[in-house]
Design a protein around this nucleic acid. Structure first.
Length: 478
RNA sequence: GGGGCCGUGGGGUAGCCUGGUGAUCCUCCCGGCUUUGGGAGCCGGUGACCCGAGUUCAAAUCUCGGCGGCCCCA
């Protein structure tokens, strides 16, 4: 085996995160990056299966109290421009449809950068009385943003293909507040299932969603120490209600503006999934979302093919109804198959050779640990659920360890400036604008911490002025 | 926002400076033989100079523009 052969087959090491990510996306057949338009990528069948498994979880959570809907992708300029702050936040990155065939359109149509302005004129028609409230809907759609910065598959896209956006409407601000709390707990549950540790914080005033009263965001920490925003929850107050004249009749016959929230998660959740758990050999996925939960590899010695295939076939038939399982009886050597399924994150590998047939056992290996051990044939099926659960816990704990290593509590500005190059800074910040913008020049102020998977004191002295401050995260961001 | 580098079979590359040979090597892929417990071997095969304009007898190579990609700094 020559060195050059090795290099052309292997992934770059994960320490070179940017290269690793770029190649893994292709080698694991998640996305084809060769589509000839900047910022647009193609989902391969395998990648799309990951997407389906992940979004099935998200959908299950949403379906508990939201109805799924679909609003059009085109928004008339007249609606998009109604909310002043909102349009200011997006106008530089809107794609416009200006012609129907060769005929210029009277009113230009925007490809949705997000759907508030598509939905809310309709909400005005839907909502008439307090009996119509609350309204809770979601949709999973593509959205378009003309990104001028460096685009990256799943992370910075011109077409976001998988934006789950929920929109709710309530009678009062307090009810909207309650919905925000629920949304945060839903997203927490979602990311726990994906074994992704998150920082939950309240975005500073200058970084909130355009048109919102406030924004709560989920960020995770990528292997290079930069953070990735992977979910947002906005309390819109009655800002949009006033713009779009969404009112309801109260029980005593008055008319009031509604209060709204919206919250979203995009395919960045899959970027996080891949980046946080993957290793030098490829994808590592929690059992629940892996497209190949179990792969059976028969080891076919000459003359023994038949007994080995029969034995592994029986196992395959026994578990295939319950799990996503593949029997790899292709004409490759076992070692090559191991590598191929490791890059794709097959969670459990079962090896069956002549020895196992004789002993009535199998050899099992978990993708995250890569040790091999023997299991009795009859005990195999009943153990899978337990293994899956333990694997998710191991993966989460490992992710949490790495997460902790990249966070540091900084006592002074110098420490902040040094650590920002390595990872996420936690420090204390007062609510004055001056201190905020001073810190925002060092890194991006993610905001006041609401929740963290590690124990830290929530209040302290502002790192700039020394007055009373709150625990705040600062980081380089994607 | 500013700067730099690059575009050659499906993937990775040599060739470009100094224009002219049958465009190099690895991998993938296809067919055959053989083999199978961590990327086997041998034989045979398919497949490429980003697009457009220009210079020239002649362009992968030089010039300009477009499109696309990568990296660094703010």
């Amino acid at each position: 085996m020559s060195k050059s052969k090795d290099e052309s087959k292997n992934l770059p090491k994960k320490e070179k995160f940017s290269e690793w990510y770029h190649e893994l996306i292709q080698k694991a057949e998640i996305m084809d990056v060769r589509y000839p338009v900047k910022g647009l990528y193609v989902w391969f069948p395998f990648g799309f299966k990951i997407r389906k498994n992940v979004y099935d979880i998200l959908r299950e959570i949403m379906d508990r109290e939201h109805d799924e809907v679909y609003f059009p992708a085109l928004i008339p300029e007249t609606e998009l421009g109604k909310e002043g702050e909102h349009i200011k936040g997006f106008e530089d990155e809107v794609y416009w449809v200006t012609h129907g065939g060769n005929t210029p359109l009277d009113i230009k149509l925007a490809l949705r950068p997000t759907s508030e302005t598509a939905m809310y004129p309709m909400f005005k028609l839907w909502i008439r009385s307090h009996a119509n409230l609350p309204l809770k809907v979601y949709q999973i759609v593509n959205t378009f943003r003309y990104e001028t910065k460096h685009t990256r598959p799943l992370i910075r896209l011109r077409e976001i293909t998988s934006f789950k956006e929920a929109h709710t409407v309530h009678a009062t601000f307090e009810e909207a507040e309650e919905q925000v709390r629920k949304a945060v707990s839903y997203y927490k549950e979602f990311y726990e299932k994906l074994a992704i540790p998150c920082i939950i914080c309240k975005r500073p005033e200058w970084d909130k969603f355009p048109g919102a009263v406030y924004t709560i965001a989920f960020d995770t920490i990528m292997p290079d120490g930069k953070t990735l925003q992977i979910g947002t929850v906005h309390n819109l107050g009655d800002n949009f209600a006033k713009t779009f004249e969404i009112t309801y009749e109260t029980p005593d016959g008055d008319h009031s503006f509604v209060h709204q929230t919206c919250y979203g998660i995009s395919e960045r959740c899959i970027a996080a999934l891949i980046s946080i758990h993957g290793d030098d050999l490829g994808l590592v996925l929690p059992f629940e979302v892996s497209p190949v939960q179990i792969v059976i590899i028969p080891i076919l010695y000459k003359g023994k093919e038949e007994i080995v295939l029969r034995f592994s076939g029986e196992i395959y038939n026994e578990i295939r109804g319950k799990y996503r399982v593949i029997m790899d009886d292709s004409d490759e050597r076992p070692g090559a198959k191991y590598y191929n399924w490791e890059i794709k994150g097959a969670a459990i590998r079962i090896e069956v050779g002549p020895k196992e047939v004789e002993e009535n056992s199998v050899v099992v290996s978990f993708r995250d640990e890569r040790k091999k051990f023997k299991v009795k044939r009859d005990e195999l099926t009943e153990k899978i659920d337990t293994w899956a659960k333990e694997m998710r816990e191991r993966i989460y704990n490992k992710a949490l360890e790495k997460f902790k290593e990249k966070i540091k509590i900084c006592e002074n500005l110098n420490e902040v400036k040094n650590w920002i190059k390595e990872g996420v800074v936690l420090t204390y910040m007062c609510d004055s604008k001056e201190c905020g913008s001073e810190l925002d020049e060092v890194g991006n102020v993610l905001g006041e911490i609401l929740e963290l998977p590690i124990d830290v004191k929530m209040e302290g002295k502002c790192v700039i002025c020394g007055k009373k401050g709150k625990l705040t995260a600062i980081a380089k961001t994607y």
